[in-house]
């Protein structure tokens, strides 16, 4: 069950661009966009996921730079299609003024791929990296 520190707030206030912290206290990215869905016909939409990654970030930047950012992100993806990385709303532990805490470890999030790639292909190969 997600804990919200405030009863009423705007997306800009507590969600968009906030830092995600995983269950081990490690940074896990930022909220680039939100996914809302319509559960039942006639019901108001609810927050179903936080979206991250270049294909969510690009459209928010807008303009030509945003299109490029999105295009690069899309070409680097494993899957076809440009739907951004989802962090299911069920994984949100706590939302406060400072950050959003998740229930999962960052290794299990979709948005982890670029970090793993950098670690395995570049940083891990430089001598002297103590893990």
């Amino acid at each position: 069950m997600t804990r919200w520190d405030e009863d009423e707030f705007t997306a800009n206030d507590l969600l968009l661009d906030r830092e995600l912290i995983d269950c081990h206290g490690m940074p896990a990215g930022r909220v680039d966009d939100l996914e809302l869905s319509d559960p039942e016909p006639g019901e108001p939409p609810v927050l179903t996921a936080l979206l991250c990654g270049p294909t969510a970030f690009g459209p928010r930047l807008g303009g030509r730079l945003g299109t490029w950012w999105q295009a690069i992100g899309r070409r680097l993806r494993l899957v076809s299609g440009s739907y951004p990385n989802r962090i299911d709303a069920g994984l949100i532990d706590h939302v406060d003024r400072l950050e959003i805490t998740l229930l999962a470890a960052r290794e299990h999030l979709d948005s982890y791929r670029f970090r793993r790639w950098t670690e395995e292909k570049i940083i891990g190969r430089i001598p002297g990296d103590t893990t």
Binding site: F114, T118, I123, T131
Partner: peptide, 9 residues
């Protein structure tokens, strides 16, 4: 450690 902050490094 560098591997935990790979992109920063």
């Amino acid at each position: 450690p560098p591997s935990a902050a790979a992109r920063f490094h």
